[in-house]
Amino acid sequence: MEITVNGRRVNTDSLRAGELAGELAGQERVILLRRGFALEETAELAPGDELQMIPKDRLPGRLELEAMLTARHTPGTQACFKAGRVAVAGLGGLGSHIALALARSGVGSLLLADFDVVDASNLNRQAYFVSHLGQPKAPAMAELIRDVNPYVETQALTLRLDRHNIPHTLKGWPIIVEAFDRPDCKAELVNTALAAFPQCRVVCASGLADMGSANLIRTRRLTSRLYLCGDEVSGAREGRGLMAPRVMICAGHQANMVLRLLLEMHEA
């Protein structure tokens, strides 16, 4: 039968995924995907199938990796993600997880901005490792992203963003993610960016500390250009800490909203 593998036509006598893998890859361990889903070895093949074959044990080349992302994702999404350009402002608990989620999704270009250095007290909730202690967060995050998807373009900036430098530093980034810690910095970024860039969209966060229900964290569309994630009340303060799961849930909300915007899905 004739099928397509990684975009190329293949004539095969194999009837099942496992046989085809052996025929095409020999001893190399591979995974075969059909319409975003990994096939069991026993899965039956059909004429006209469009399959992706991905090596399991080595870094795929750029085209192979892109084919893999395309194959794993909902059909039609990858080209939009790849064209995406997103600025992540703040790379702490929120921003480190947001940036990684966007990189894993294959978002093409990321600006990574943070003034701070990784310290031991960050490890309870931020995406860094012990090996990053003492390193500035922006280059540390760029390094982590290279370990996940080396084909994402990153620009690492070690800088404290404020109302004076935001207008030129974030100029030209169509989606800006606010992932700061302090409430005044959050407000400063949201207000400055929306005023300086008439087209940009901002995804911000407020309320993710403590041990409240995960279900209280939500995404709201506040205006046509501003989205807010969080429970909106649980601020970090003495007696009310920041823990990995709720921080990651909120980061997940923000990253998901960014991906939705890249697909022109505007509702929260």
Binding site: G90, G92, G93, L94, G95, A179, F180, D181, R182, P183, D184, K186, A187, V190, C204, A205, S206, G207, L208, A209, L222, L228, E232, V233, S234, G235, A236, R237, L242, V247
Partner: peptide, 9 residues
């Protein structure tokens, strides 16, 4: 609508 940001990130 007043969005009063709280800390944490």
């Amino acid at each position: 609508e007043v969005i009063a940001f709280v800390g944490g990130g």
